[in-house]
Simulated assay, not measured.
Amino acid sequence: MSGLVVVSAGLGQPSSTRLLTDRLAAAASDALRPGTAVETVELRDHAHAMVDAALTGFASGALRAALDAVADADGLIAVTPVFNASYSGLFKTFFDVVEPGALEGTPVLLGATGGTARHSLAIDYAMRPLFAYLRATAVPTAVYAASEDWGGAGGGLAERVARAGAELAALVEARPAAAAQDPYDDPVPFEELLAGGGR
């Protein structure tokens, strides 16, 4: 089991986005088997490399390691602040440079933060379509945290976090283990290559 990878698109340090990210990761980790690894990717640390990768089509260094971790994850938690009623540009840029097919079938827990609960639908009309396009499997419960949710009487944030974490854990546990595949296991026959019939 590769474990969970957590992607946080918060801009500040500290940020409410990272706070929600950590709570979601703790809830999912508690619901999974003991010892499940959790790796956090702070997108602000890769901002320049992400723009370079978007321009060149090539990721290297720490960004490459982060992309590989996301592709190999058993489960993913993705959290963004809401700007202009959608996910942040930092968040979108990262998933723009994720390789096609890398998230296919990966269980994903979606989270977002914002100043007001009026933007909570951004998860359903912006984030879910993005991950549907990437062919990931989003858990039913997504978690949006507005400013008032951090005061203690904010609409059951703890309950929503626990429910979403349990749903992610259930999908991760139910997912069949991916078999390592060698690209040379099924080569195209030489005669077929000569005939121009490559697959």
Rank of each mutant, 00 (worst) to 15 (best):
L4V: 06
V5T: 12
A9Y: 00
G10T: 07
L11Y: 11
L11H: 11
R18S: 13
L19G: 13
L20E: 01
R23F: 08
L24F: 11
A28E: 01
P34C: 03
T36C: 03
A37Q: 02
E39Q: 15
T40A: 11
E42K: 09
L43A: 03
D45N: 09
D45F: 01
F58S: 14
A59F: 04
R64V: 03
R64C: 10
A69W: 01
A73P: 03
V79A: 02
V79Y: 07
P81D: 10
F83T: 05
F83K: 00
K92Q: 12
K92F: 01
D96V: 08
V98A: 13
E104H: 13
T113A: 01
G114N: 08
G115V: 04
P129V: 06
L130M: 15
R135I: 03
V139N: 03
P140K: 01
T141W: 00
V143R: 10
A145W: 09
G151H: 11
G151T: 15
G155H: 13
G156K: 10
A158Y: 07
G165D: 07
L168V: 03
L168Y: 03
P176I: 08
A178N: 07
Y184W: 15
P187F: 03
P187A: 09
F190W: 14
E191Q: 05
A195G: 12
G197E: 15
G197R: 15
R199F: 07
R199N: 05
